[in-house]
């Protein structure tokens, strides 16, 4: 089932790529492609994170605000508070991990719904970030170029095109995530919990700990994303930085085959889903006759089409299988 889903979304991605390339001469520019890959990589990291939560049947709405908190917090600590970078990075990273632990604790111990917990997180972390920065734009100015290279550098392939560093990071994280999900007992536990938490608990799985782990993964990936987004743009306006990113991440995961009912999902699918979201945005920017201000409408419509098409394909496959079973019998 998953392979079919992945194939479907991959076809959609190819279709949008071909369409955009045919409509806009600048789409295949090395500069544009590089940029597209860079953004896909950054968003891919946070989408993988939220996929783990979605697989357990939960949701994480706080991602964008965690990105803001971490992304503004890092330059604030370094530039305003004059912390050494070597202390500031572990500090903001720990904050992200702790946020995940707090979410997991509230959800598994106090039994508060994930939607509520992370919605409050969404408001809380952005509010905090705007508070301590006093709404001032944060950035490293021209300092710490070496560190920022983690996000801005690239591995040259030709003299015009290079593979952006974040892509390398994404590949590493995605491989780790896929191995964790499909090859370890913990990944299996998460999938089982997403489908039937009660039966998982009766099978001796520490369901609370596993769900907590999922929220920690989500918040941690958002934290890593926050640092990278910051280093990439070197410019973070606390009232806007990371706005709506949780929705992009959730949409990518859903497009990529994660069911919000839980228990289903693949990392490869999430990556393709992320790429599709980015190419769509790129398409809207590049193709002249599509007005830029309808961006959300286009993205919403495409996601809806993807999900509907998936459902239609599923039913047709079921019908075909039934027919085959009949003639085969």
């Amino acid at each position: 089932m998953q392979t079919k889903k992945i194939f479907g979304i991959l076809s959609l991605l190819v279709a949008v790529v071909l369409f955009t390339a045919s409509q806009s001469g600048s789409f295949l520019d090395p500069f544009n492609l590089e940029n597209l890959i860079r953004r896909t990589s950054l968003f891919g990291i946070i989408s993988i994170g939220v996929a783990f939560v979605i697989i357990t049947g939960g949701i994480d709405l706080s991602i964008g605000s965690v990105i803001c908190l971490v992304g503004c917090g890092l330059p604030w600590l370094v530039m305003v508070q004059k912390w050494p970078l070597a202390a500031a990075v572990p500090a903001v990273f720990s904050v992200a991990v702790l946020i995940g632990v707090a979410h997991g604790f509230l959800i598994t111990r106090l039994k508060i719904q994930p939607f509520v917990v992370t919605l409050c997180g969404l408001l809380l972390y952005r509010g905090l970030a705007r508070g301590f920065t006093q709404d001032q734009t944060m950035g490293f100015q021209s300092e710490y170029k070496g560190f920022r290279a983690l996000a801005t550098a690239e591995i040259p392939i030709t003299d015009q095109f290079g593979i952006p560093m974040p892509f390398v990071l994404l590949v590493v994280l995605a491989v780790l995530a896929a191995v964790f999900l499909n090859r370890t007992i913990y990944g299996r536990y998460l999938l089982a919990i997403g489908r039937n938490e009660e039966a998982a608990r009766f099978s001796g799985i520490n369901t609370r700990a596993m769900i907590l782990v999922a929220y920690v993964i989500s918040a941690t990936m958002a934290g890593i994303g926050g640092i990278l987004f910051m280093m990439d743009s070197n410019f973070a306006q606390p009232s806007e930085f990371g706005n709506f990113y949780e929705l992009y991440a959730i949409a990518a995961a859903v497009l990529g085959g994660c069911s919000l009912r839980g228990g289903e999902g693949s990392i490869l699918g999430v990556l393709i889903g992320t790429a599709l979201m980015q190419v769509l945005q790129n398409m809207i920017n590049l193709v002249d006759w599509i007005p830029t201000n309808i961006e959300f409408a286009v993205i919403g419509a495409v996601i809806l089409c993807g999900v509907v098409a998936d459902e239609v394909v599923k039913r047709m496959a079921a019908l075909r299988r039934a027919a085959q079973a009949r003639t085969g019998a």
Partner: peptide
């Protein structure tokens, strides 16, 4: 309580 209905036979047996 007994089964994860959406998973397959092998996955349920080994859980």
């Amino acid at each position: 309580e007994g089964l994860v209905l959406g998973m397959d036979v092998a996955e349920n047996l080994s859980l």
